[in-house]
Design a protein around this nucleic acid. Structure first.
Lengths: 234, 234
DNA sequence: GTAGCGGATGTGGTCAGACCATTGCTCCGT
DNA sequence: ACGGAGCAATGGTCTGACCACATCCGCTAC
């Protein structure tokens, strides 16, 4: 077993055992190296992996923001992995879009059911979705910002579904194909017309969820994603 | 931007551009360092990330197996990310199981539809599933091996669905919660009885897919996973 | 002429030590 | 009491070196 893998195993074990909880700091690189009897570069490689996976956030300097802090950004690691595997060419964008449709149509259905159950928090999420939709209504909003609002809008429903992993995967997928989407926008015959349609589709999804109509919400979001994907030619 | 991130960006750009395709070798660490005007440790950290994400496989020595070879094991990176985030405690095992149910029930439905469409390859996958099921029939097979066969059995249907990303995520999820499953087995009141039930459930899934009955296959696999998950107390 | 063997070569893996930039804290002087 | 200068801790990076391993090539012995 390679040295940095030993370090990684040690850190994973400690995290799993709760030795270093969320928001807490790992020992310094020098201290870890000495404790484990390895060199600092080996420790650094292990921490770099945790960094890439969204487990820790290295911080320079001194004080509470310094050191390798245990965070939790699952989307970071998942997104990077998906993006790179798309880059290698063995992971077709088509499959990424299909997976997104699968996850998101499930998510909006869950969201709709939670609305019917009057689950706590749903009202706030719906309100936020409405606010985002309102900002997208502005004709002057540039395409790039529209996409950000779009992403936040979609994410709001995924959050409502209450599955952290689905939320992370969704965020990662969106980030991974963000570049393709941006390129797709460029090739649209008419961005204003597409934007208008997207707004209407967003409205349909929002209404279905707010009404607690799970099947309608699923169908609406499926049509929305697949339609845009087809039009943008990703 | 940190130095190793520059290297990472360079490598990702090259992979995306097809400069280094699958099975090909990246330049050596020393050569990369010189080309980019950075030090070898910085290059190593970047390669270590690609290694962790399942993009490259470093190989020592000389010859065709040496050097950082571009591979494609999406499940490796996704599995590690999920496992570690479960370890931090913010990713509940419950969510992982729910996501698995979602993905796999979709996959078997797709598989059943492909059977109906007489899609190429389905017969071979079904045959392999039958073979695995046959090996699981043996009462003498130890629990650990049974779990491996079980995993392979499930994976066969996911492969049939033909979505590389779903297959990768599924594999990653299974790997991430493998430890919990093993612990769950220990706590079962009677492994032989559970094994018998699992066999029957596997049979039901296989029959539904082979018959092209997508809804039945979905329900069967959902009940199968949730039932075991509940019994094992994960 | 051929077969076997040993060194040359190139690869990642690891280590030691050093310096830098950044950040927060402490202590001293006003 | 306040403010600034210095100090300490941290990650980021670099240099140079050595090791283990796997292959390849050329030399040597038969």
């Amino acid at each position: 077993m390679r040295t940095h893998e030993r370090v990684l195993a040690h850190l994973e074990e400690g995290i799993a055992a709760g030795r270093w909880g969320l928001g807490e700091r790992l020992p310094g690189e020098r201290a870890l190296a000495e404790d484990l009897g390895v060199s600092r570069p080996s420790v650094r490689e292990a921490i770099r992996v945790l960094d890439a996976l969204g487990i820790v956030r290295p911080g320079v300097g001194s004080g509470p923001t310094a050191g390798a802090v245990v965070i939790d950004r699952p989307a970071a690691g998942l997104g990077a992995a998906v993006r790179l595997h798309v880059a290698t060419g063995t992971l077709p964008v088509r499959d990424v879009v299909a997976t997104r449709v699968l996850l998101e149509s499930w998510a909006v259905a869950q969201a709709a059911e939670r609305v019917m159950d009057h689950a706590p928090g749903t009202a706030a999420h719906l309100e936020e979705a409405r606010r985002l939709l309102g900002r997208m209504e502005d004709d002057d909003v540039p395409a790039a910002e529209f996409l950000e609002l779009d992403q936040a809008f979609h994410l709001e429903f995924v959050r409502m579904a209450g599955n952290v992993l689905v939320e992370a995967v969704m965020t990662g997928l969106r980030g991974a194909i963000g570049g393709y989407v941006a390129v797709g926008i460029e090739r649209l015959p008419s961005w204003p017309r597409t934007a208008a349609r997207l707004r209407a589709e967003h409205r349909a999804v929002l209404d279905a969820v707010a009404a607690g109509d799970a099947p309608a919400a699923s169908l609406a979001v499926k049509a929305h994603i697949e339609g845009f994907s087809r039009e943008a030619g990703v």
